[in-house]
Simulated scan of single mutants.
Amino acid sequence: MSLDDLTENVQDSYRTIDDEVSVSLDREAQNELALLEAALDPEDTDELVRRAIHLFFQTTVDSGKLDFQLRSEYDVTYDEYLSGMTFEQMTGADQYPSMDDERRYQF
């Protein structure tokens, strides 16, 4: 897969998130959410879920796990996704034709 595939998949997910997200919680998660809600007193429980997603995302980026997963699945990194260009495109390495090994040293 490629950067274009990743971008398309992110856009598809973004369009369907509002329709699909309804989280069922196990007992442990429900107890933890209840404690966090009591301690932090957010306006609503959704605010805690948003914070949890932000924290999980940041932790995944900082630990390098996101880059690992993106490289495994799409052969790009998070920085490449953000810039919209692969490293080869940024450095111009993909502008040169491939070398023909049989004719490399012929004049």
Rank of each mutant, 00 (worst) to 15 (best):
E37R: 12
P42M: 02
L35G: 11
V49A: 01
R50Y: 03
I53E: 07
N31H: 15
L40V: 07
V49E: 00
V49S: 00
G64P: 01
L33I: 04
I53F: 08
A38C: 09
L36K: 11
E43R: 09
T59P: 00
D62R: 09
G64K: 02
A34N: 03
R51Y: 11
P42F: 10
F56R: 14
L55R: 14
Q30G: 08
T45R: 12
T59K: 11
F57R: 02
D41L: 03
A38T: 13
V61D: 05
D41H: 01
D44G: 00
E47M: 03
E28P: 07
N31M: 13
I53P: 00
D44K: 04
T60Y: 13
R50G: 00
R27W: 12
D62M: 05
D41A: 07
E28R: 13
D46Y: 14
D41F: 04
P42T: 05
D41C: 02
A38Q: 10
R51P: 06
T60F: 09
F57G: 08
T45K: 12
Q58A: 15
V49L: 01
Q58E: 13
R27A: 13
V61T: 12
D46N: 15
E43A: 11
V49N: 00
A39Q: 15
Q30A: 13
L40M: 07
L48V: 00
D41I: 02
R50A: 04
Q58M: 15
E32W: 10
Q30N: 13
E32K: 12
A39Y: 08
A29C: 05
D44C: 06
R51V: 07
N31R: 15
A34F: 02
L55I: 14
E47H: 11
R27Y: 05
A38Y: 10
E32V: 09
D46H: 15
F57A: 06
Q30D: 08
T60G: 07
L33D: 07
S63A: 01
N31T: 15
A29M: 10
L36A: 10
G64C: 04
F57C: 03
E47K: 08
A39D: 11
A34I: 03
S63Q: 05
D41Y: 01
L48N: 01
R50W: 01
A34K: 05
D46S: 14
R27E: 15
L36M: 11
Q58H: 15
I53C: 07
A52L: 07
E47V: 08
L40Q: 09
G64V: 11
A39S: 09
L55M: 06
E43S: 10
H54V: 09
T59Y: 12
L55Q: 13
G64Q: 05
D41M: 06
T45D: 04
A52N: 02
L33P: 09
S63N: 13
L33G: 03
T59A: 04
S63K: 01
S63C: 07
R50I: 00
D41V: 10
D44E: 04
G64E: 06
H54W: 03
F57Y: 10
T60L: 12
G64R: 02
A29Q: 09
Q58N: 15
A29F: 04
L35R: 15
E32Y: 06
D62Q: 10
